[in-house]
């Protein structure tokens, strides 16, 4: 299970974290707290998106 999902989860977490930070910066916010929170939120969302990606691959 874990061996199956980690290779999907990790890149997804990275992509969504970067997307969260990029969105926040694009909207003109540079305070570190908000950027860190955006990155963390992206990683947490990857938890929900991973099962969807695994389905899509089946």
């Amino acid at each position: 299970m874990l061996r199956h999902s980690l290779p999907v989860f990790l890149p997804l977490a990275l992509i969504l974290s970067v997307a969260g930070v990029a969105y926040t910066v694009t909207m003109g916010h540079l305070d570190p707290q908000r950027l860190v929170a955006a990155a963390l939120t992206g990683a947490v969302l990857a938890l929900g998106v991973t099962p969807l990606m695994l389905r899509a691959r089946e």
């Binding site: 939120t41 947490v44 969302l45 929900g48 998106v49 099962p51 969807l52 695994l54 389905r55």
Partner: peptide, 17 residues
């Protein structure tokens, strides 16, 4: 709110799978 989102995505994955 993020918990709702993650759980809903998880559920959607189950529904589709």
């Amino acid at each position: 709110g993020v918990a709702v989102l993650v759980l809903a995505l998880w559920r959607l994955g189950l529904r589709l799978g």
